[in-house]
Amino acid sequence: MSAGIFVLSTLPELFLLFGTFFAAMGQDGYVHLVNTPQKVIIYGLSNLAWLLMAIPLGFWNDKKIYKEVREELSKRPRYWKRAITIYCAVIVMMVVTVNVTFPHFSPNENTIKQELMEIRGK
């Protein structure tokens, strides 16, 4: 039971992690981080996703916490549904923002081709 709940609780973080790497993926299918803003975005959001996935590990197999969580969920179910929805929406907005803005931090492909030609020519 606790393994299933852990997987469900980490789905938004996995979406953040894979969405971030999808933004950085080049045409060849590999992640190429060319400049500092790209590295800051990718490393920052990747580490955030890993840290958010590690939070539920602290509550693994603790009967007292399970009981408290069930009581809280039964007291205010609407509040928690909204909170989870907002949490997932914020993560989706972060992924969309990264996918929209990441190409602006990437160098122009013509510039890359010119630099490669200069290197090969020398």
Rank of each mutant, 00 (worst) to 15 (best):
N99K: 11
L33K: 09
F105H: 09
V95Q: 04
T36E: 09
T20D: 02
V69G: 00
A49V: 00
M53H: 02
E115C: 02
K81A: 12
V69Y: 08
W80G: 07
V92R: 10
D62Y: 06
R82G: 10
I41M: 14
E71N: 09
L45G: 02
M117S: 13
V90D: 01
G26K: 03
N99I: 02
K39P: 00
I55F: 09
I55L: 12
P103N: 07
G44H: 06
G29M: 08
E115I: 01
K113G: 04
E115V: 08
L51Y: 13
L51T: 10
M117Q: 13
L116G: 02
I84A: 15
T101F: 13
E109K: 14
M53V: 05
I112E: 08
V100S: 02
D28G: 09
V90K: 03
L52R: 14
F59W: 05
A54V: 02
P56K: 00
G26P: 06
N35I: 01
W50R: 14
N99Y: 04
V98L: 04
M117C: 04
Y43G: 08
Y66W: 14
D28V: 02
L52N: 13
T101P: 01
A83D: 05
L116A: 07
T101K: 06
N35V: 04
P37E: 06
L48W: 10
R120H: 09
K39M: 15
L33N: 06
M53E: 01
A89V: 04
E109N: 11
E68T: 03
P56H: 04
F59T: 05
K67T: 11
Q27T: 10
F22S: 09
L33D: 04
F105W: 13
Y43Q: 11
L52I: 00
F102E: 00
N108W: 01
E109V: 12
V96F: 05
R82F: 13
V34D: 07
F102S: 03
L52C: 13
Y43I: 11
K75R: 15
A54T: 00
V69A: 15
N47A: 12
S74D: 11
L52K: 10
S74K: 14
W50F: 15
H104T: 08
K64H: 04
Q38P: 02
K67I: 07
V34W: 07
T85L: 15
G58T: 09
P107I: 08
T97F: 12
T20G: 08
G29T: 05
E71W: 00
P77N: 07
W60N: 12
L33T: 06
R78D: 11
G19F: 07
Y66H: 15
N110R: 14
W50T: 09
E115K: 05
R78N: 14
V31F: 01
M93I: 10
Y43A: 15
G29N: 02
T36L: 15
L33F: 06
I119V: 02
V40I: 14
L45Y: 15
T20H: 01
A24K: 07
I84K: 14
F105C: 04
E68P: 00
Y87S: 12
W80V: 05
K67F: 01
A24R: 09
V31E: 07
P56E: 08
V92Q: 08
H32A: 09
I84P: 06
S74M: 14
F22Q: 11
G58N: 11
Y66N: 15
M53P: 06
R120C: 03
E115F: 02
L48R: 13
C88R: 14
V90G: 07
A24C: 09
V95S: 02
I42M: 11
P103L: 07
